[in-house]
Computed example of a mutant assay.
Amino acid sequence: MAENRASRYAEGVPCWVDVQLPDVEAGKRFYGDLFGWSFEDSYALKEGERVAALLPKTDGRMPTVWTVYFATPDVEALARRVLEAGGNIVAAPLETRSGEAVTALVTDPEGAVFGLWQPLAHPGFGRRHEIGTFAWAQLYARDTETANDFYGPLFHAALFGPDAKPDFGRAPVADVFFPEMPPHFVVHFRVADCARAVERVTGLGGRVQAPPFETSYGTVAVVTDNQGASFALLQRPD
């Protein structure tokens, strides 16, 4: 099976993303125009396959954010390991309303939030690494050694195993953002032309947090949508 159409994901591989928005319909118009997504209920589709979810924000006190989920065959066991490694649980393991997965929200020792995803009927991305789909998750940490000490053992096979093809990197917060910004994950979506995609974001009412810059994995720009959710655009090298 092609790498970008995997039916299941090994533990520690980013396998799903969602965003909680105050206005889901406005979000559909923004992302549909930007990435060519169509929609089926809360699911964003590319070529008819699920690539993300746009969910209604139910608590105004919570941030408007994209969340990346890492695959696991046992969400409760992985949540315990997160605690043992110095992280915290934000939302305990719970089956989704659709019954398609068991999920949890946790943090690393520095407070960066990420999700855990145990598939039931929904294994995760139907497509990834293509234009308009998930391509990378970057953790911006205060201390990358602390991050390495936490995520290395937690997701060792996905990061360092013989078949590892990581979709996940770490960098200091101050490399891109103000040093005072809390540690956090930034979800990256692949685009054909980063500069043009940035122009499209601003044309749709979004804004630029970090204009295009070069990384080891491609040209990246960090932007927000028209409701304030941050994400990144990634143009891979030819």
Rank of each mutant, 00 (worst) to 15 (best):
A10S: 12
V113S: 06
R5M: 12
F168K: 03
F231M: 11
F231V: 04
V90K: 09
V13E: 04
E130P: 03
P153L: 03
R61S: 15
D163S: 12
R207H: 15
P123T: 03
D167R: 08
Q209Y: 06
K28D: 08
P153K: 02
V176T: 11
C194P: 04
Q118Y: 03
G32N: 08
T72R: 01
A157R: 08
P63A: 11
V173Q: 06
F213R: 14
A91N: 06
E84I: 07
G203K: 08
M181R: 14
P73N: 01
V223E: 07
G115D: 05
P237F: 02
D163A: 15
L94F: 02
Y151Q: 05
V13H: 01
V102K: 00
F168T: 01
G132A: 11
P119H: 05
W37E: 09
A91H: 04
F178H: 14
T133M: 02
T58S: 14
A141T: 14
E76N: 09
A232Y: 04
T146Q: 14
C15M: 03
A229T: 07
V173H: 07
A91I: 03
V186K: 04
G152H: 11
R81Q: 12
A44F: 08
K165S: 11
C194F: 02
A197E: 11
G206I: 01
F213E: 10
K46I: 03
F70Q: 01
K46G: 06
V24F: 04
A232T: 06
P162V: 04
P73G: 02
P63R: 11
A135H: 05
V82N: 00
V220A: 07
N148K: 13
T144F: 01
L116V: 01
D163C: 01
L45D: 12
